[in-house]
Design a protein around this nucleic acid. Structure first.
Lengths: 299, 299
DNA sequence: CTAATAGTGTCTGTTAGACACTATCTA
DNA sequence: TAGATAGTGTCTAACAGACACTATTAG
């Protein structure tokens, strides 16, 4: 390899040895971790129902003191952002092999009133059964919030939803109005989503976290249709009804069992196990067919 | 609103007024702009063919001096990352209403040998016809490269491609081997793509830019199937054959005209114009139906 | 006329959606 | 037995893929 020299006559080695990192102002870089799980709740009529939950922490200092926020933290100078996200995840779950993907990077100037912060958000999925009840981290107040997102009547011909978060075993409720505006991007009309607190609100999420949460929900809804991410929300062995409930919760609509099973069958394999002890026909347990995608690609 | 105080007894106002940005080391933050267009090239047999092109610039300093790179730059402390991307785009194109979307954020520790750099990449699409030939920016060498990505025979039962970039009107060619490895993410097998220079290579892209480029190509391929982004690569008025060629180039396969037209028809409206002067049946010009998506959503 | 590309009609097999039906457990 | 959930068979309408065909220009 010949030694190329730059305009100052330096080789790469010389250049790097003399390189002074310029002293302009840099943003801080953080990661946010949206950790989701699916859990059972018991409704007023003593019926069990599946709900989607997200993990939030209560802020202990300004800004947004005493408000709930998506867990996150600074990226160390000598770790990758993915590693920082993973570290954050570990702090909250303490389990391995958790599904995680990058969601989006938020870079508005005034996201944080203290200083300029750029944050990359990650999304992670854990089956409820794998979550060991965390030892009460005295300093931190952490809680699962269950999520409801309901379409409401169009106002001004726009699509709107009420997004509400209810604290697990608590009274606190956070409500947002989600509205799609249409905006031009090139020749396309793309949706620009507004997330605004409902006026009856007492509680709010910190920073732009409501917007981040909403984007994560959209991502989940989209990806569950064309990828097998849902399998990250059930235990290793599961019944097809359980899995169907996961789909129904995330998509926010009921599915026909026959159709659902037809669609899912190629992705799973039977085990010899069945559920027992319930007052109805026992159901077969299935496993995810790990090489499903590989087979698919090799055809 | 009551005044909440933190553990030091400060109100938010007091807290922010006294807030000292901690002096730990911060990464630099940059944006990269992947600008694509579709152009005609004339093959050896004097046939016209469509190709996908990407804009690259030649680096004038270490590291990776004299090598081609995706255009990009630092994010100013008082501008959003999206604004920085937009600024970069403007610098290269000088046209408005360009389609742009965030691609991914790259945060490995040693991406840049000078210092820690985190980079958010954006993808933009411009119709060739809108590109005014840029006034020769003396300091910068900028060029379009056309992209070929061809599947090669499986080695060890893996999918592989040759990704090659050829400089517009030049001899330079950059070739990479793209291979999918499978990796566990939660219970799923997801593809982890390796992009390695072909051993016959003389030229390379700078930094991790080959990987970024490859991800952008994947994104394009996916999104063209289920969104109307392709309309950003043709002029305001276009023939359906033109549009079909855009799809074919990005998907890397031939489509049946009858089927293509059936699929596209609901997204376009006829104009009264037709092409003239060609030695075959003239073709009707169409426009994109801007409110296509809206109509769709309102049903 | 030919060469070349524009554009259409229609058959096929696959799939999404809807719904009615059967199966198997506990109490 | 009833009540509850598990699980299947099948009809229909919509759609993707394949292919044969017609249309209209320049030279």
């Amino acid at each position: 390899m010949e030694e190329k020299r730059n305009q100052d006559g330096l080789t790469e080695q010389e250049f790097l040895a003399n390189y002074k990192v310029q002293d302009y102002e840099r943003p801080s870089v953080t990661v946010d971790m949206l950790l989701f799980t699916i859990d059972d709740i018991v409704t007023t009529r003593r019926k069990k129902e599946k709900v989607l939950k997200v993990l939030l922490i209560k802020r202990k200092n300004h800004p947004f003191i005493e408000q709930w926020a998506i867990p996150g933290g600074f990226v160390d100078i000598d770790e990758s952002i993915e590693h920082a996200a993973y570290r954050e995840l570990k702090e909250e779950t303490n389990i391995d092999h958790v599904y995680m993907e990058q969601l989006y990077t938020w870079g508005e100037v005034n996201r944080d009133p203290r200083m300029r912060v750029i944050s990359t958000s990650y999304l992670a999925l854990v089956p409820k059964e794998d979550l060991k009840p965390k030892a009460g981290d005295d300093a931190k107040e952490v809680s699962w919030f269950y999520i409801k997102k309901e379409k409401i009547e169009d106002k001004d011909n726009e699509e709107s939803w009420i997004l509400s978060l209810k604290k697990e075993g608590g009274e606190e409720e956070i409500r947002y109005l989600v509205t799609n505006k249409f905006e031009k991007n090139g020749v396309l009309l793309v949706t620009d989503t507004m997330v605004t607190p409902c006026n009856d609100n007492k509680e709010f999420l910190a920073f732009d976290h409501s917007q981040i949460l909403n984007m994560a929900l959209e991502r989940l809804k989209n990806k569950i249709e064309y990828t097998p991410i849902a399998f990250n929300l059930v235990p290793k062995e599961f019944t097809l009804s359980q899995l169907q409930q996961v789909y129904e919760t995330i998509l926010g609509k009921k599915l026909f069992p026959a159709n659902f099973r037809k669609k899912i069958k190629p992705m799973v394999e039977e085990t010899q196990l069945k559920t027992i002890g319930q007052a109805h026909r026992p159901s077969r347990l299935y496993k995810y067919k790990t090489n499903y995608e590989r087979e698919d690609l090799c055809m």
